[in-house]
Simulated assay, not measured.
Amino acid sequence: MAVGEVGLAGEVRRVTGVQRRLAEAARLGFTHALVPGDPGKIPSGMRVLEVADIGDALRVLPRRVRREAPQEADERR
């Protein structure tokens, strides 16, 4: 899961309610999240990776996820 807003230059910006969104994601079973810097209190069992821009996000995503995503999009068409 990812929380934040992507700017035109690719930067990942904070949005309101990051802690609330992370708590809800943890309740729904998510275990990892990409967030902009300083996410605040992190729910137990959730691994949060801070990213500054889209480049950071792509570097930390597992290769399997990056490779499978386009195929899934094609299947939905």
Rank of each mutant, 00 (worst) to 15 (best):
A33L: 00
E5K: 13
L61D: 12
E5F: 09
E75C: 01
P62R: 04
A26Y: 01
E24K: 01
E75R: 05
F30P: 03
A33T: 06
V12Q: 09
V12M: 09
M46K: 03
R14G: 13
R64A: 13
E24I: 09
G17P: 03
A52F: 06
A23C: 10
V51G: 04
Q71F: 02
R64D: 14
E11I: 00
R66I: 03
P43D: 12
R77Y: 02
L34Q: 11
P43Y: 01
E68L: 08
E72M: 09
R27G: 09
T16I: 00
L49K: 07
H32Y: 03
K41H: 05
V18T: 14
G40L: 01
L28K: 02
L34A: 11
R27Y: 00
G17R: 03
R13G: 05
D56A: 01
L58M: 13
V60Y: 06
V65L: 15
G17H: 11
R27M: 05
R77C: 03
V6L: 14
P43R: 06
R21N: 09
L28I: 08
P39L: 03
G55F: 05
V15L: 05
V15H: 12
E68D: 15
A25V: 14
R59V: 07
A2H: 09
E11Q: 13
R20Q: 14
R77F: 01
G55H: 08
G17Q: 11
E75I: 01
L8A: 13
T16G: 12
A69E: 15
G45S: 07
F30E: 14
P62E: 14
A73T: 11
G29Y: 02
E68I: 06
A69Q: 09
G55W: 01
R67D: 15
R47I: 08
P36S: 09
L34S: 13
R64Y: 10
V6Q: 11
G7L: 07
E75N: 10
G7Y: 05
T16D: 15
V3I: 15
R14Y: 06
A52N: 05
R27S: 12
L61K: 00
P62V: 00
E75T: 01
P39K: 00
A2P: 11
A33E: 09
T16Y: 07
R47N: 11
T31M: 00
A73P: 01
I42F: 00
A2N: 14
P70Q: 08
V18M: 12
